[in-house]
Structures are given as structure tokens and as C-alpha cells.
Design a protein around this nucleic acid. Sequence first.
DNA 1: TATATTATTGCAATAAAACGCAAAAACACG
DNA 2: CGTGTTTTTGCGTTTTATTGCAATAATATA
Lengths: 248, 248
Amino acid sequence: MLKKERHDFIMRQINLHNRVLTSDLVQLLTVSEDTIRRDLQELADEGLLFKVHGGALSKSYHSSFDDSTVYARDSKIIIAKKATNLITDGMVVLTGGGTTILEFVKQLPKNIEATFFTISPLVAVELAKYNNIEVILIGGLFSKNSQVTYGGQVITQLAELKADLCLMGTSAIHPEQGLTDTYWEINQLKKAMLAASKKTAVLCISEKLDIALRLRVCPIGSISYLITELDQDHESLTGYRDKEVNIL
Amino acid sequence: MLKKERHDFIMRQINLHNRVLTSDLVQLLTVSEDTIRRDLQELADEGLLFKVHGGALSKSYHSSFDDSTVYARDSKIIIAKKATNLITDGMVVLTGGGTTILEFVKQLPKNIEATFFTISPLVAVELAKYNNIEVILIGGLFSKNSQVTYGGQVITQLAELKADLCLMGTSAIHPEQGLTDTYWEINQLKKAMLAASKKTAVLCISEKLDIALRLRVCPIGSISYLITELDQDHESLTGYRDKEVNIL
DNA sequence: TATATTATTGCAATAAAACGCAAAAACACG
DNA sequence: CGTGTTTTTGCGTTTTATTGCAATAATATA
């Protein structure tokens, strides 16, 4: 393999996973550690990556690392990590959009093998970094506000799908009123997503608990899992536990 | 064997395998290393390949690899700006993916009013920043390499569409061979995109001119506009102008 | 702090490239 | 046809690039 090809390979790995380990590259490219280190050094000299102890990091990733613009990011990371426990190899998963779902994707183990349907382009791009995940993007009208596809075409496609698990964020959940929303289009969309999945997990930060909005998506009983940043036995979650929702 | 024949042979190898080794060519052509090096040097001087230590690499291959640091970004901005002139209010536009198309979106005037169909999630997200553009993302399998949707579902949806204009990038264009590609899936996709549009504009940097790859997308006559970073009357474009392609 | 992992450095073997040169072939032209 | 010129090619030599190894230093991790 030519040196230039190795460099291209390394850059592709970097762009895909935001990081590379020297040891991984040694195996993948079957050259000595020294060669990989020199490669990384040269690429770093060109300003294409950050060389660190043990490997290298993507520049873009590094600069956008502390993305403090994401609201309540710490809570969302906790939620995302909990959600990954629901995913097992071979699963067919359907996801919505939103920062919490995006964080969930970033927390997935690198080698997981699954099929993901999603209505979020950003989630699709993030999922594409995983070699063993098949990604299907559900197409349709693209919403400027929520950054997901919606509308009749999406609902038609969802009607043909039966996923093992649906992961969605929400702007409101209430022990009596269930899942509710403000916009009719999003409401219709979520109904279709629920119908397209055997089980549904709702990911939301605690401040969205006990809120009911105008339009009802489903009763609380239709939710299989509720994932918040709170402890499983936190008192705020009593109302949901009583309705036999699994609290994670 | 004549020198020209050797050059043709080398270029065929390059387009077929994206790479050649000096040592292989020495054996295949039974000439000395010096001769091969001189051949590669001359072809590199003509801009037909990248000469590297140990051999040479295809230009299209190389530039499709590193999509982090956008290759030839200045040229792509020039191309993108030219392309925006093709867009008028009320138009229905279909776009592919790639860094050049993405740059094109960023160069669009803010108040333009149009409908955009796209197979690229990144393009969709960028288009969503424009208030008066309706964005429809065409869904399907998501390609980890080219970051666009593809496959049967995409082609079925394209079959129902008739856009005014299709904008696509390419890895190779040739005055006699037309538009060509290396991968069958992408080839099928581009054919469907062409069929779904009244006119087609191809955006590519000049180093992709006069290259023919394995699979043919369409003859040069099917292209309405060719947009490069070169001046309209540049001599490299003569072959295309003769085929009645509009050069921008 | 102790231990394991990862980096750095200088060095040597090998491979590739560059350079100058000369033989051979192709070409130009009276 | 002959002669001078240009092009092409290969050879030997020098220079440079690439790679792996071993000894040592730095860094991470328990």
C-alpha cells in the first residue's frame, strides 16, 4: 500500500469516527507503529488532524467538543447512555430527531450491529459512522423547525414498517394525559411512529415531566420506557411507575 | 510499444483500479523504471493523475476520499456561484450530494423562492435555513461513503418526479464518453436523477474533465450545462462546447 | 508509586527517485 | 541518400524516501 493511500485511509477513519487509535491502524494497515506515528505526524503537520497520545482526533470534532449551545447537555448525555442499554444486536430501531436522540447515537458502542430507520438527517449522518449499522432515512417534506422529515409521505412509509423499538424525544409527558404535542403535523408523525414499533422509549429531561399540551399523541400506557436523567426511584417519577411504564 | 500506447495503457489502469505501481508497470510493459517514471511525470504534468512515491493515483479517487478539508475549495466556490445563476423563483430543483453542491446551497441568495428535492441530508439541512425554500428529502438506504440516499426506493420516488433542473457533481466527464462512474449503485442513481429532470447541470472542478470511468451514466448530449472553475472560453472546454453543452 | 502502554530518537536496510550520460531510433531537410 | 538534430530509452551512480528495529524517555492507569 502506498503512503498516500495510507494517509487517505487514516483521514477517512478520522472523518468517520472523529478519532483513531495508533494500535487499530497498525492492525488495519499491517505496518509498524513507527510508520503510523510518522503518518499521523505528517498529517498533523499539514493541519489535517490533532495528534494525541494513543492516536489522533479530528479537528472539527475537537473544536466543537464543548458544544455548550446544547441545552442541558449533561442531562442529555446521562439519558443517552441509559438508552443505549435498550439496543441489542440485530435489532430494528426507529428514531425521531432532536438533540437527545443525536446524543444517544454518539453514545452507542462502536461495534453494534443493527438496522436503524430515522426521520432525522443529522441522526442518519451520525449513524453512518458505524460500520455495522444499516441506515435507512425516511424521506418526505423537511421541517425547518424540528429538522426531521414529516408529512403524508413519511406516514405512508412508516405504515409499512414494524420496528422492534422506537426512540423519540418529546416536549411534554404527563401521567394522566400521556404524550402530547403542540403541532398537528408532529402529532400525526409521532402517532405513526408509535404504530410502526413494537415498543417505544421516550427520552426527555425531567423538566418536561407532568406537562400536557394541546394535542394528544397517545396514552401513557402506550409508552414502554421512560428515560430521564433522574434516578429510577426518584419521587417525580412515581406517577409514571404507577402506570406500569418502565423507568430507566 | 509506442509511447502514446503506454500512456493510454497507464491511464486505463488508473481509471480501472484508481492506482498504479511503478513496479507493476515495469513488468506489464517490459520497459525500464526510468521510462515509467518519465511517463508518469508527463501524465502528471498534463494533470491526468497524481504522481506519488511508488506509483500514481487517480485524481477522482483521491479527491473523493478526503472530504474533511474540502479539496480545491476555492474552485468549488467559483463553481457554486456560477450555478446559482441557473436558479430562478418558482423553480423545482433536484440535487445530488457532495461538497460542491453543498457549497452551491451556501451561495444561494437568501430570499430565493423554490422547491428543492435532494438525496443529501446535509444539503437538506443547509436548505432548511432558507425561509422560502420548500425542502423534500428523498428517503432510502443511506450510503456511508457518499452520504446520500440510494437504492430502489430512491429510484422509485425519482421516477414520479419531474424537476426543472437537476444539479449534480461528478467524478468524471469526457467529451466522447460522457458522464461516467465507478459504482453501479451511484450509476443507477444518476440515471434516475437525469430522467427526473428537464435539464441537467454538472458541477465539477477542471481536473475531472476528460476522464472516463467504467460505467456510463449518459452521453455528453444529455448534459445541459457544464460548470467548472475555468473561464467560459477556456481551451480545455472546447470538446464539450462542440457537443453543444452550455459552458458556464 | 508501580506497571504497562505509548512516544521519541538514532540507526540501518531497503526501495524508489533523480541525474547525467550515451546508445539507438526516429525525424528533418538539403 | 546522407547528415545533423531531436526524441526516446536504458544504465550506472548518487540522492532521497520509506520503513522497521532497538534503546530510551514520556505518559497513562491502576
